[in-house]
């Protein structure tokens, strides 16, 4: 009865509905994009009406919002934060710096393509994207969740060795190596 395919489908629909309408966001404020988050959350654009609210720690968060360029020093912290989050989890890459390097394309210390190191579900382009674009991105993510296509975390688990190899290329010997963080 429980393992029946149809009942599983109904459970999935209910769970996806709940996940879609309640996104706890951990905004990892790197770069200039962090300044776009307060107007998105406060009275002018009010993302809370879509059920989007801030979470203070990775344990409580569903969405990791990476707002701008990542230096090699921060990417290590971001990977640790991502791996501390609990399933299901999603990543939003924010601004052209996370897509192709943006204006830091020739910098010696910032990574250029975020989806080589973390599984990105949605990219929001722009330099910087305005709060309207951010909300649009969140709504795209909600659609993906409802359709059951937002499976970045699953992809990360399945292709962990590929991601680890990419991370090792940038981070060298100090790449995080534990998958579960219980400390």
């Amino acid at each position: 009865m429980i393992n029946d395919k149809n009942s599983q489908k109904i459970v999935d629909i209910i769970q996806n509905f709940a996940r879609k309408h309640s996104l706890f966001v951990l905004a990892y404020g790197t770069g200039c994009g962090a300044i776009e988050i307060p107007p998105t959350m406060t009275s002018r654009y009010d993302a809370e009406r879509f059920g989007i609210r801030g979470a203070a720690t990775p344990r409580q968060a569903d969405v990791l919002l990476i707002t701008g360029y990542l230096t090699t020093k921060t990417v290590k912290r971001v990977i640790r934060v991502y791996e501390q989050m609990q399933d299901p989890k999603y990543v939003i890459g924010f601004g052209s710096c996370t897509i192709n390097g943006g204006m830091y394309w020739d910098s010696y210390n910032t990574i250029k393509v975020l989806d080589r190191y973390l599984p990105v579900d949605i990219y929001i382009n722009g330099c910087m994207p305005r709060p309207e674009a951010v909300i649009e991105g969140f709504i795209k993510l909600q659609k993906k969740i409802m359709e059951g296509r937002a499976e970045g975390a699953k992809h990360y688990k399945e292709n962990l060795e590929w991601y680890r190899a990419n991370q090792k290329k940038v981070l060298g010997p100090t790449t995080p190596h534990i998958q579960e963080y219980n400390w």
């Binding site: 209910i14 769970q15 509905f17 709940a18 996940r19 309408h21 309640s22 059920g51 344990r59 569903d62 609990q86 399933d87 299901p88 579960e180 963080y181 219980n182």
Partner: peptide, 14 residues
């Protein structure tokens, strides 16, 4: 909705 989502989340912290 928040409560439903939190209950349907996986928890693997010890």
């Amino acid at each position: 909705i928040d409560a439903l989502k939190l209950v349907s989340k996986k928890t693997s912290v010890h």
